[in-house]
């Protein structure tokens, strides 16, 4: 026993070092392993508050640009509204007045684009009606899906994540595809498994499909920049330029699908049959 204590005293530096490293590796494997990618730590309210304060200070210097962006969006929405009100007048009797999507505005307080798996932190949480698996969009296009919620903040798995997949449709021919990141550049994503007969042009628009309950149909996802022919001549890939510029993301909207619980229950029943 005495020898053991002397041994520990003599080598405490190395022993403590090894203990700390083992602790680090354990933490790393616990939080980064394939199925447990919950980010309990960054959705924690204290960390959220620090980031929010930092963003407040940063925003102060960017007020001009933020104002311009919002004004631009306002103008665009007004133009759309004008068209919509025109056409709507003739339909008001037939159209069901309940819309199934609600948009909750939120502000991005932290954001990364250059890691293998990227997340955003937004300043709305459970208290504002945010739940896990809600879609997040910006005024330009889709952004990601809520992955974790705390009382006042939520962490969003952005499209720039190795597990992000979004069901999309080519606007001009209606063909469906799965959009994922697949590159290391934050401006580009990939759509796999495109049949060879499908001829895509550069600049073709990609929008969200109606097969997802997370995003409404026809939201802009990006544009085709390149069709990558597969060497074996089977299925092609397309390189997509995201509509959203993730590096300058500031204001986003969280989408609340009011009938989602009902739909989920229905699908669950269907699978059990």
């Amino acid at each position: 026993m005495y020898n053991l204590i002397r041994f520990i005293q003599k080598h405490h530096f190395v022993i403590l070092f090894l203990a700390l490293e083992v602790l680090c590796i354990t933490l790393l494997t616990l939080t980064q392993s394939f199925h447990r990618q919950k980010r309990i730590n960054t959705t924690n309210d204290l960390v959220g508050k620090v980031y929010a304060t930092g963003t407040d200070i940063g925003d102060y210097f960017r007020l001009g640009k933020i104002n311009r962006d919002l004004a631009e969006e306002n103008a665009q929405l007004r133009r759309q509204l004008a068209v919509v009100t025109d056409t709507l007048e003739s339909y008001t009797e037939t159209v069901n007045k309940d819309t199934i999507y609600e948009f909750i505005p939120a502000r991005v307080v932290n954001n990364t684009v250059n890691r293998p798996n990227n997340y955003l932190l937004i300043d709305k949480g459970k208290a504002d009606g945010i739940e896990k698996d809600m879609g997040v969009i910006s005024s330009d296009g889709i952004v990601g899906i809520v992955s974790d919620v705390s009382q006042h903040y939520a962490s969003v798995m952005s499209l720039l994540h190795s597990y992000s997949t979004i069901s999309v449709r080519f606007k001009n021919n209606g063909h469906l595809g799965i959009l994922h990141w697949g590159t290391t550049n934050y401006r580009y994503g990939i759509i796999d498994d495109i049949p060879t007969h499908l001829l895509l042009q550069e600049g073709d628009t990609v929008v969200t499909s109606s097969y997802s309950f997370i995003f409404p149909e026809n939201l802009l996802a990006g544009t085709v920049t390149e069709l990558i022919q597969s060497p074996s001549g089977t299925l092609n890939k397309a390189k997509i330029r995201f509509a959203t510029d993730f590096s300058t993301l500031k204001n986003v909207y969280v989408i609340h699908h009011t009938n989602k619980a009902e739909l989920d229950a229905l699908i669950k029943n269907q699978q059990q049959l």
């Binding site: 403590l16 700390l20 590796i25 933490l27 790393l28 980064q32 980031y51």
Partner: peptide, 23 residues
């Protein structure tokens, strides 16, 4: 050692990479 570990851990908490910077 504890100072280094503590510094890394705080950075990890903010960056969501628990254990990486600490290690």
């Amino acid at each position: 050692l504890l100072s280094g570990f503590g510094m890394g851990l705080v950075i990890d908490l903010f960056m969501g990479t628990l254990g990486m910077h600490a290690g």
